[in-house]
Amino acid sequence: MTPRLQPVSYKRHRFPPQIIAHAVWLYFRFPLSLRLVEEMLLERGIVVSYETIRRWGKKFGPEYARRLRRKQPRPTDIWHLDEMGVSIAGRKHWLWRAVDQDGYVLDEIVQTRRNTKAAKRLLTRLMRKQGGLPRRLITDKLGFYAAARGQLMPSVEHRSHKGLNNRAENSHLPLRRRERVMQGFRVPGGLQQFASVFSAARNLFVPPRTRRSTLATHLHRLSATAEWKSAAGVAA
């Protein structure tokens, strides 16, 4: 049985939890800079600095994401793997990401290497978090994936073809847009934390591919908003 998490604590914060949760939602859900979030709150008569919003995102974003991820269905049966290069302080890093057949981000990890060891680390984390093996693994033609799969899950079917892996490659695009708005990331830990919260929020709010009607999308977003508020511990 999964242990119950303690409620989010807002002690020693002068702003109400509803405002904090709303500011964090704006920052991680939309391609907005901290200063734009500050301006949007000011339009509602809420005077708060962008630096305070940054601290709220750093403190509460991971807390909200932990609660959201606990509610997601597992396991899935197809894993799409890919990596995107990110320059941090003049050094190349790699964000290794896994998504399922619906584009739902399963996990992501920032690493300095692009080799078999890095691919194995991603697969090891996935097996632990998903509680088992996938039915199929889909990657591009990078040989490190085949080597890691052969060592960790040799019985799993592996399809290696660039055209089959658009789902994983497309999952990088929203983060790329945020990277431009934020003018890059300053430290690897900052990228890891931001990507984790950003993906949890995106997983929650983007409607499944099978529910694309206007009404279904509207209902999905209402449900997602209620779930976000529940994770933040604020009244719906």
Rank of each mutant, 00 (worst) to 15 (best):
P3Q: 15
P3A: 15
R4Y: 14
R4H: 15
L5S: 15
Y10Q: 02
Y10N: 01
Y10P: 08
Y10V: 08
K11H: 15
K11M: 12
K11I: 13
K11D: 15
R12L: 12
R12Q: 12
R12S: 13
R12W: 15
H13R: 13
F15I: 09
F15V: 13
F15P: 10
Q18I: 12
I19T: 14
I20H: 08
I20P: 08
A21G: 09
H22Q: 13
H22G: 09
H22K: 13
A23T: 01
W25L: 14
L26R: 08
L26K: 03
Y27M: 01
Y27A: 01
F30C: 10
F30W: 09
F30L: 10
P31C: 01
P31F: 03
P31W: 07
P31I: 05
L32F: 08
S33H: 00
L34T: 08
L36R: 13
V37L: 04
V37I: 09
E38S: 06
L41G: 02
L41E: 03
L42T: 06
L42W: 11
G45R: 03
G45F: 04
I46G: 02
I46V: 14
I46K: 07
V47K: 07
V47T: 10
V47F: 10
V48S: 01
V48G: 00
V48K: 02
S49K: 03
S49W: 08
E51Q: 13
T52I: 06
T52L: 11
I53V: 09
I53Q: 06
R54C: 09
G57N: 03
K58H: 12
K59W: 12
K59F: 12
F60I: 07
F60D: 00
F60E: 00
F60V: 05
G61Y: 04
G61Q: 07
P62E: 10
Y64M: 14
R66S: 09
R66C: 12
R66N: 07
R66V: 07
R66T: 04
L68V: 10
L68Q: 03
L68M: 12
R70P: 02
K71M: 11
K71S: 12
K71H: 09
K71F: 10
K71W: 10
Q72K: 05
Q72C: 05
P73D: 02
R74V: 07
P75H: 04
T76V: 14
T76R: 01
T76N: 03
D77K: 01
H80E: 01
L81Q: 04
E83D: 14
E83C: 00
M84Q: 00
G85H: 09
V86P: 01
I88G: 00
I88P: 05
I88Q: 03
G90F: 09
G90A: 03
G90V: 05
R91M: 05
R91H: 13
L95E: 03
L95K: 06
L95I: 05
W96Y: 09
W96G: 00
V99S: 07
V99Y: 02
V99C: 01
